[in-house]
Amino acid sequence: MKNNDVTEKKSVISINNLKKSFGSLKVLDGVNLNIKLGENLAVLGKSGSGKSVLIKIISGLLKPDEGTVTVLGLEVDKISPVELRALRSKIGFSFQNSALYDSMTVRENLAFPLIRNKTNLSKTEIQHAIEEVLNEVGLPQTIDQMPSELSGGQRKRIGIARTLILKPEIMLYDEPTAGLDPITSSEINSLIKKVQAQYKTSSIIITHDLTCAKNTADNVAILVQGKFLKSGSFDEVFKSENEIARTFYEYNFINDK
């Protein structure tokens, strides 16, 4: 077993010896990763450690310098733009700042990917799908609001709803609880678990928030200097003597001591 492997079981996402640099800065330096069907993996790491770059490579937004990234059996950087678009319809990406289209209402934000990916849907079916995902995230009343009228937590939920409307098989969450108060963070954590259970998704959750990792992930992995330093279940990782894992734990759960 390679040092950086999270798991070697059959997977929906498989990354092998992934390397990515920006100029002379090495961001990812030989990452190996496997995500099983239905598994939630939280990736922890310092700011600038390459966590977001990892999920951007998985979704095909960035190209790797070396290594292979296989998602649902397809090598992301080797497939044609048409195949990549089809693959992306099975991947939900929740951005750190939600990335809602600020010139569109919530309804238009949610309809945007649906209209372009499922062209045979009637207006009634589109309306029904929008109402369904808004109910899933608990925000049916926001349907005609503009993103600027929403709170941070609401924006996160609508961002997740926009990804759910295509019924993804994989969810990628970039800092889902960043900048949110503890109560809203807790609601987002519950939503992530609900999505996993209801949509049978496999997910990668990029976070600094150990509460989020503990409550949403089946496994956690710590990314340090472009490699996974430690991976396994929450207890395996944070009950170890590893200094970086201890620092993360003590900073997040200082009151537990």
Binding site: L61, R88, N97, L100, F112, R162
Partner: peptide, 17 residues
């Protein structure tokens, strides 16, 4: 503004052009 707030990336990952 759409580029720096990742709205263009969001369109791309939601399988649109």
């Amino acid at each position: 503004s759409m580029k720096v707030t990742e709205q263009i990336d969001a369109m791309e990952v939601s399988a649109t052009n």
